[in-house]
C-alpha cells in the first residue's frame, strides 16, 4: 500500500458520492442517505489509512479523533460495501438518467479496484489480466443504458422479458452469495486444518 493509491481512493470516494448526490434534492431521506454514504466512504478511508500507517498502535494517548479512528478500524465493518450500496440507493432516489448511472457504475468499479489495490499494496498493472472482462462488462453496461434510453423498451413484451430475466438473475445471484456471506469467517478465526505429518 502506498500513499498515492490511498489518495486515488480518496479522490474516487469523493467523485462517487458527489456524482451520486448531484443534483442534491430537498428531503430528509436523500440528505440522510448522502450523509451515511459519505460517512461510509470516510470510514473506509480511515480503515485503509490506519492499515497503511503501521505505527498507529503505539501512537500515544487515545483522545478525541484518534479514539474514533481506532474504533472505526477496530469495528472491521465492510465500509466499502456500505458506500457502494449507499451510492446505488442515492442514484435510485433520483429520476431516471441512464448515462449518469453508467458513469456512476464506471466510477464505482474504479473505486472498488482502487480499494482493492490500496488494501493489497499491488501495482495497478496487476489488474491487467482482468481488463478484457472489465471492458466487456462496461460494454454491456453501455448497452443497458442505451436500451433504457429507448422509449419503446420501457413497456411491452420485451421489457417484461428483460425484467423477468433480471429477477431470475437477481434470485440466482442472491442464492449463490448468501451462503457465502453467512459463513464469512473473521480474520482471526483459528484454523481448523488437519495436520498430516509426512
Amino acid at each position: 500500500m502506498n500513499l498515492r493509491s490511498l489518495l486515488v481512493t480518496a479522490a474516487l470516494t469523493a467523485a462517487v458520492v458527489g456524482w451520486a448526490a448531484v443534483p442534491l434534492r430537498a428531503g430528509f431521506g436523500i440528505k440522510l442517505v448522502v450523509l451515511l454514504t459519505a460517512f461510509a466512504g470516510v470510514a473506509n478511508l480511515i480503515q485503509l489509512g490506519l492499515a497503511w500507517w503501521r505505527g498507529y498502535e503505539n501512537a500515544g494517548d487515545l483522545t478525541g479523533g484518534r479514539l474514533a479512528a481506532r474504533l472505526i478500524a477496530a469495528a472491521r465493518l465492510p465500509w466499502a460495501e456500505a458506500m457502494t450500496v449507499g451510492a446505488l440507493v442515492l442514484e435510485a432516489l433520483h429520476h431516471a438518467r441512464p448515462w449518469h448511472t453508467v458513469l456512476l457504475g464506471v466510477a464505482l468499479l474504479g473505486y472498488l479496484f482502487a480499494v482493492h489495490l490500496t488494501e493489497t499494496g499491488q501495482h495497478p498493472a496487476a489488474v491487467r489480466p482482468q481488463l478484457p472482462l472489465l471492458a466487456a462488462g462496461v460494454g454491456l453496461l453501455a448497452l443497458a443504458a442505451g436500451a433504457a434510453a429507448l422509449p419503446a423498451a420501457t413497456s411491452g413484451l420485451a421489457s417484461g422479458l428483460v425484467r423477468s430475466i433480471a429477477i431470475i438473475a437477481a434470485v440466482v445471484a442472491a442464492g449463490l452469495a448468501l451462503p457465502t456471506w453467512t459463513r464469512r469467517p473473521s480474520q482471526h478465526e483459528p484454523g481448523q486444518g488437519q495436520q498430516q505429518d509426512r
Binding site: L88, E91, A92, A96, P98, T101, V102, L104, G105, L108, L109, L112, Q130, L133, L134, A136, G137, V138, L140, L141, A142, L143, A144, A145, A147, A148, A153, S159, V162, R163, A166, I167, A169, A170, A173
Partner: peptide
C-alpha cells in the same frame, strides 16, 4: 427489479463477468 430501471441491471454486468 424494485425500481423497474434496467440500467441498474446493467451495473451488475461488469462485476458478474469478473
Amino acid at each position: 427489479v424494485i425500481t423497474g430501471r434496467p440500467v441498474f441491471a446493467g451495473l451488475a454486468a461488469p462485476p458478474l463477468l469478473l
